[in-house]
Amino acid sequence: MKRNLLRLAGKRGAWGFPYLIFMLIFVLLPLILVGVYAFTDHAGHFTLANFGQFFNQSKDINTFLYSLGIAIITTLICILIGYPIAYILSNANLCKSEVMVMLFILPMWVNVLVRTLATVALFGFVGIPLGEGALIFGMVYNFLPFMILPIYNVLKKMDKSYIEAAQDMGASPAKVFTKVIFPLSMPGVISGVMMVFMPTISTFAISELLTMNKIKLFGTTIQENINNGLWNYGSVLALLMLVIILITTWVTDSNDTSESAGGLI
Protein backbone atom coordinates (compact mmCIF):
# COMPACT_ATOMS: atom_id res chain seq x y z
CA MET A 1 0.00 0.00 0.00
CA LYS A 2 2.67 2.42 1.05
CA ARG A 3 4.74 1.36 -1.93
CA ASN A 4 1.90 2.10 -4.31
CA LEU A 5 1.34 5.48 -2.74
CA LEU A 6 5.01 6.30 -3.10
CA ARG A 7 4.97 5.30 -6.73
CA LEU A 8 1.93 7.51 -7.28
CA ALA A 9 3.68 10.39 -5.55
CA GLY A 10 6.66 9.77 -7.81
CA LYS A 11 4.52 10.56 -10.82
CA ARG A 12 4.35 14.29 -10.63
CA GLY A 13 1.30 14.37 -12.89
CA ALA A 14 -0.61 12.87 -9.98
CA TRP A 15 0.20 15.81 -7.75
CA GLY A 16 -2.71 17.67 -9.25
CA PHE A 17 -5.24 15.19 -7.84
CA PRO A 18 -5.77 16.84 -4.44
CA TYR A 19 -6.51 20.13 -6.18
CA LEU A 20 -8.73 18.37 -8.70
CA ILE A 21 -10.82 16.91 -5.88
CA PHE A 22 -10.85 20.28 -4.13
CA MET A 23 -12.06 22.04 -7.28
CA LEU A 24 -14.72 19.42 -7.95
CA ILE A 25 -16.16 20.06 -4.48
CA PHE A 26 -15.68 23.81 -4.20
CA VAL A 27 -15.85 25.03 -7.80
CA LEU A 28 -17.83 22.62 -9.95
CA LEU A 29 -20.34 21.24 -7.44
CA PRO A 30 -21.42 24.72 -6.25
CA LEU A 31 -22.04 25.81 -9.84
CA ILE A 32 -24.08 22.67 -10.48
CA LEU A 33 -26.06 23.46 -7.34
CA VAL A 34 -26.92 26.88 -8.75
CA GLY A 35 -28.45 25.05 -11.70
CA VAL A 36 -30.24 22.55 -9.45
CA TYR A 37 -31.75 25.28 -7.29
CA ALA A 38 -32.83 27.23 -10.37
CA PHE A 39 -34.81 24.26 -11.69
CA THR A 40 -36.43 23.17 -8.44
CA ASP A 41 -39.01 24.58 -6.05
CA HIS A 42 -38.90 24.85 -2.26
CA ALA A 43 -39.70 21.17 -1.79
CA GLY A 44 -36.98 20.16 -4.23
CA HIS A 45 -39.27 19.13 -7.10
CA PHE A 46 -38.40 19.95 -10.68
CA THR A 47 -40.07 23.12 -11.89
CA LEU A 48 -39.74 25.89 -14.43
CA ALA A 49 -41.80 28.28 -12.32
CA ASN A 50 -38.70 30.20 -11.18
CA PHE A 51 -37.94 31.12 -14.76
CA GLY A 52 -41.57 32.00 -15.36
CA GLN A 53 -41.40 34.30 -12.37
CA PHE A 54 -38.44 36.13 -13.87
CA PHE A 55 -39.98 36.62 -17.28
CA ASN A 56 -43.28 37.75 -15.77
CA GLN A 57 -41.64 40.28 -13.52
CA SER A 58 -40.90 43.29 -15.63
CA LYS A 59 -39.23 44.91 -12.61
CA ASP A 60 -36.34 42.45 -12.52
CA ILE A 61 -36.00 42.32 -16.30
CA ASN A 62 -35.79 46.10 -16.35
CA THR A 63 -33.13 46.07 -13.64
CA PHE A 64 -31.24 43.52 -15.67
CA LEU A 65 -31.40 45.54 -18.88
CA TYR A 66 -30.52 48.73 -17.03
CA SER A 67 -27.45 47.04 -15.46
CA LEU A 68 -26.48 45.75 -18.87
CA GLY A 69 -26.65 49.31 -20.22
CA ILE A 70 -24.62 50.75 -17.33
CA ALA A 71 -22.04 47.99 -17.73
CA ILE A 72 -21.72 48.64 -21.47
CA ILE A 73 -21.33 52.40 -20.97
CA THR A 74 -18.76 51.86 -18.20
CA THR A 75 -16.80 49.44 -20.35
CA LEU A 76 -16.80 51.81 -23.34
CA ILE A 77 -15.63 54.76 -21.26
CA CYS A 78 -12.92 52.55 -19.74
CA ILE A 79 -11.69 51.66 -23.22
CA LEU A 80 -11.74 55.30 -24.36
CA ILE A 81 -9.78 56.54 -21.35
CA GLY A 82 -7.72 53.43 -20.72
CA TYR A 83 -6.46 52.64 -24.20
CA PRO A 84 -4.48 55.87 -24.63
CA ILE A 85 -2.97 55.37 -21.18
CA ALA A 86 -1.92 51.82 -21.98
CA TYR A 87 -0.54 53.04 -25.30
CA ILE A 88 1.51 55.84 -23.73
CA LEU A 89 2.76 53.58 -20.94
CA SER A 90 3.90 50.92 -23.38
CA ASN A 91 5.62 53.39 -25.69
CA ALA A 92 9.22 53.90 -24.63
CA ASN A 93 9.40 57.24 -26.50
CA LEU A 94 6.55 58.69 -24.49
CA CYS A 95 7.06 57.15 -21.08
CA LYS A 96 10.16 55.55 -19.72
CA SER A 97 9.18 55.00 -16.14
CA GLU A 98 8.19 51.56 -14.85
CA VAL A 99 6.96 53.21 -11.67
CA MET A 100 4.30 54.98 -13.71
CA VAL A 101 2.86 51.61 -14.73
CA MET A 102 2.76 50.54 -11.13
CA LEU A 103 1.01 53.71 -10.07
CA PHE A 104 -1.82 52.94 -12.47
CA ILE A 105 -2.16 49.35 -11.30
CA LEU A 106 -1.90 50.10 -7.61
CA PRO A 107 -5.48 51.28 -6.94
CA MET A 108 -6.65 47.89 -8.18
CA TRP A 109 -5.34 46.31 -5.01
CA VAL A 110 -7.07 48.65 -2.63
CA ASN A 111 -10.27 47.33 -1.15
CA VAL A 112 -13.20 48.02 -3.48
CA LEU A 113 -15.33 49.38 -0.65
CA VAL A 114 -12.59 51.67 0.58
CA ARG A 115 -12.11 53.00 -2.95
CA THR A 116 -15.82 53.50 -3.45
CA LEU A 117 -16.21 55.27 -0.12
CA ALA A 118 -13.29 57.47 -1.08
CA THR A 119 -15.09 58.29 -4.32
CA VAL A 120 -18.27 59.10 -2.43
CA ALA A 121 -16.20 61.32 -0.15
CA LEU A 122 -14.68 63.08 -3.15
CA PHE A 123 -18.10 63.71 -4.67
CA GLY A 124 -19.33 65.05 -1.37
CA PHE A 125 -16.26 67.24 -1.09
CA VAL A 126 -16.60 68.74 -4.57
CA GLY A 127 -20.37 68.86 -4.35
CA ILE A 128 -21.36 66.41 -7.09
CA PRO A 129 -24.78 64.87 -6.36
CA LEU A 130 -24.90 61.10 -6.01
CA GLY A 131 -26.94 59.38 -8.71
CA GLU A 132 -26.64 57.91 -12.16
CA GLY A 133 -23.76 60.12 -13.25
CA ALA A 134 -21.89 59.47 -10.03
CA LEU A 135 -22.53 55.76 -10.46
CA ILE A 136 -20.94 55.60 -13.92
CA PHE A 137 -18.11 57.86 -12.84
CA GLY A 138 -17.46 55.72 -9.79
CA MET A 139 -17.55 52.50 -11.78
CA VAL A 140 -15.05 53.87 -14.29
CA TYR A 141 -12.93 54.97 -11.36
CA ASN A 142 -13.03 51.51 -9.84
CA PHE A 143 -12.44 49.47 -12.94
CA LEU A 144 -10.18 51.60 -15.13
CA PRO A 145 -6.96 49.86 -13.96
CA PHE A 146 -8.46 46.50 -14.98
CA MET A 147 -8.78 47.84 -18.52
CA ILE A 148 -5.36 49.50 -18.69
CA LEU A 149 -3.33 46.53 -17.51
CA PRO A 150 -4.24 43.83 -20.06
CA ILE A 151 -4.00 46.31 -22.97
CA TYR A 152 -0.64 47.49 -21.67
CA ASN A 153 0.62 43.91 -21.41
CA VAL A 154 -0.31 43.12 -25.00
CA LEU A 155 1.10 46.39 -26.39
CA LYS A 156 4.32 45.89 -24.47
CA LYS A 157 4.85 42.41 -25.86
CA MET A 158 3.92 43.40 -29.41
CA ASP A 159 6.55 42.76 -32.05
CA LYS A 160 7.71 46.25 -33.03
CA SER A 161 8.95 45.10 -36.43
CA TYR A 162 5.33 45.01 -37.69
CA ILE A 163 5.05 48.71 -36.96
CA GLU A 164 8.40 49.45 -38.57
CA ALA A 165 7.44 47.40 -41.59
CA ALA A 166 4.22 49.37 -41.99
CA GLN A 167 6.13 52.64 -41.68
CA ASP A 168 8.73 51.51 -44.23
CA MET A 169 5.94 50.76 -46.65
CA GLY A 170 4.82 54.37 -46.27
CA ALA A 171 1.81 54.05 -44.00
CA SER A 172 0.81 57.24 -42.22
CA PRO A 173 0.90 57.21 -38.42
CA ALA A 174 -2.89 57.05 -38.33
CA LYS A 175 -2.88 54.13 -40.70
CA VAL A 176 -0.20 52.31 -38.72
CA PHE A 177 -2.39 52.62 -35.67
CA THR A 178 -5.70 51.59 -37.21
CA LYS A 179 -4.32 48.83 -39.43
CA VAL A 180 -1.49 47.39 -37.33
CA ILE A 181 -1.34 48.41 -33.69
CA PHE A 182 -5.04 48.38 -32.83
CA PRO A 183 -5.87 45.02 -34.43
CA LEU A 184 -2.82 43.43 -32.78
CA SER A 185 -3.86 44.79 -29.40
CA MET A 186 -7.35 43.30 -29.63
CA PRO A 187 -6.63 40.36 -27.25
CA GLY A 188 -5.73 42.89 -24.56
CA VAL A 189 -8.87 44.91 -25.20
CA ILE A 190 -10.95 41.74 -24.99
CA SER A 191 -9.38 40.70 -21.69
CA GLY A 192 -9.97 44.21 -20.42
CA VAL A 193 -13.61 44.08 -21.47
CA MET A 194 -14.03 40.77 -19.64
CA MET A 195 -12.44 42.17 -16.52
CA VAL A 196 -14.52 45.34 -16.51
CA PHE A 197 -17.86 44.20 -17.92
CA MET A 198 -18.51 41.19 -15.69
CA PRO A 199 -17.82 42.90 -12.36
CA THR A 200 -19.75 46.05 -13.29
CA ILE A 201 -22.86 44.13 -14.21
CA SER A 202 -22.80 42.03 -11.04
CA THR A 203 -21.57 44.42 -8.40
CA PHE A 204 -23.93 45.52 -5.68
CA ALA A 205 -22.02 47.36 -2.97
CA ILE A 206 -20.60 49.97 -5.34
CA SER A 207 -23.95 50.97 -6.77
CA GLU A 208 -25.57 51.08 -3.34
CA LEU A 209 -22.91 53.36 -1.94
CA LEU A 210 -22.65 55.62 -4.99
CA THR A 211 -26.36 56.25 -5.40
CA MET A 212 -27.46 56.13 -1.76
CA ASN A 213 -29.56 53.05 -2.65
CA LYS A 214 -31.49 55.07 -5.21
CA ILE A 215 -30.46 52.98 -8.20
CA LYS A 216 -30.65 49.23 -8.05
CA LEU A 217 -28.39 47.12 -10.25
CA PHE A 218 -28.79 43.45 -11.04
CA GLY A 219 -26.21 42.40 -8.44
CA THR A 220 -28.34 43.99 -5.74
CA THR A 221 -31.40 42.11 -6.99
CA ILE A 222 -29.53 38.80 -6.79
CA GLN A 223 -28.18 39.58 -3.35
CA GLU A 224 -31.57 40.66 -1.97
CA ASN A 225 -33.23 37.46 -3.14
CA ILE A 226 -30.54 35.23 -1.67
CA ASN A 227 -30.53 37.17 1.60
CA ASN A 228 -34.32 36.95 1.86
CA GLY A 229 -34.14 33.19 1.56
CA LEU A 230 -35.47 33.07 -2.00
CA TRP A 231 -32.65 30.75 -3.05
CA ASN A 232 -34.44 29.18 -5.99
CA TYR A 233 -35.33 32.47 -7.62
CA GLY A 234 -31.92 33.91 -6.73
CA SER A 235 -30.34 30.94 -8.44
CA VAL A 236 -32.24 31.70 -11.64
CA LEU A 237 -30.77 35.20 -11.62
CA ALA A 238 -27.30 33.81 -10.87
CA LEU A 239 -27.72 31.30 -13.66
CA LEU A 240 -28.56 34.15 -16.02
CA MET A 241 -25.25 35.78 -15.06
CA LEU A 242 -23.45 32.50 -15.71
CA VAL A 243 -25.01 32.28 -19.17
CA ILE A 244 -23.78 35.79 -19.96
CA ILE A 245 -20.28 34.84 -18.83
CA LEU A 246 -20.41 31.74 -21.02
CA ILE A 247 -21.56 33.80 -24.01
CA THR A 248 -18.89 36.49 -23.50
CA THR A 249 -16.17 33.88 -23.05
CA TRP A 250 -17.38 32.04 -26.10
CA VAL A 251 -17.74 35.15 -28.28
CA THR A 252 -14.35 36.50 -27.30
CA ASP A 253 -12.92 32.97 -27.37
CA SER A 254 -10.40 34.13 -24.83
CA ASN A 255 -8.03 31.24 -24.61
CA ASP A 256 -5.51 33.66 -23.26
CA THR A 257 -7.51 34.86 -20.25
CA SER A 258 -5.29 32.81 -17.99
CA GLU A 259 -2.30 34.58 -19.40
CA SER A 260 -3.79 38.02 -18.98
CA ALA A 261 -4.94 37.23 -15.47
CA GLY A 262 -1.44 36.06 -14.75
CA GLY A 263 -0.24 39.37 -16.08
CA LEU A 264 -1.88 41.05 -13.11
CA ILE A 265 0.91 39.82 -10.94
Binding site: M23, V27, I201, S202, I222, G234, M241, S258
Partner: peptide, 29 residues
Amino acid sequence: YKMVMTSLNNIPILNPDIITGISLFLLFV
Protein backbone atom coordinates in the same frame (compact mmCIF):
# COMPACT_ATOMS: atom_id res chain seq x y z
CA TYR B 1 -6.44 16.04 -17.88
CA LYS B 2 -4.27 19.09 -18.28
CA MET B 3 -7.03 20.92 -20.10
CA VAL B 4 -9.65 20.00 -17.49
CA MET B 5 -7.36 21.21 -14.72
CA THR B 6 -6.57 24.54 -16.37
CA SER B 7 -10.22 25.19 -17.28
CA LEU B 8 -11.41 24.39 -13.76
CA ASN B 9 -8.65 26.61 -12.43
CA ASN B 10 -9.88 29.47 -14.62
CA ILE B 11 -13.49 29.28 -13.43
CA PRO B 12 -13.06 31.17 -10.14
CA ILE B 13 -10.99 33.80 -11.97
CA LEU B 14 -13.60 34.37 -14.68
CA ASN B 15 -16.62 34.13 -12.40
CA PRO B 16 -17.77 37.40 -10.90
CA ASP B 17 -17.35 37.27 -7.13
CA ILE B 18 -21.07 37.33 -6.57
CA ILE B 19 -21.48 34.02 -8.43
CA THR B 20 -18.61 32.41 -6.53
CA GLY B 21 -20.14 33.66 -3.29
CA ILE B 22 -23.66 32.47 -4.00
CA SER B 23 -22.62 29.10 -5.37
CA LEU B 24 -20.48 28.37 -2.30
CA PHE B 25 -23.31 29.58 -0.07
CA LEU B 26 -25.64 27.09 -1.76
CA LEU B 27 -23.04 24.34 -1.29
CA PHE B 28 -22.85 24.91 2.45
CA VAL B 29 -26.60 25.16 2.99
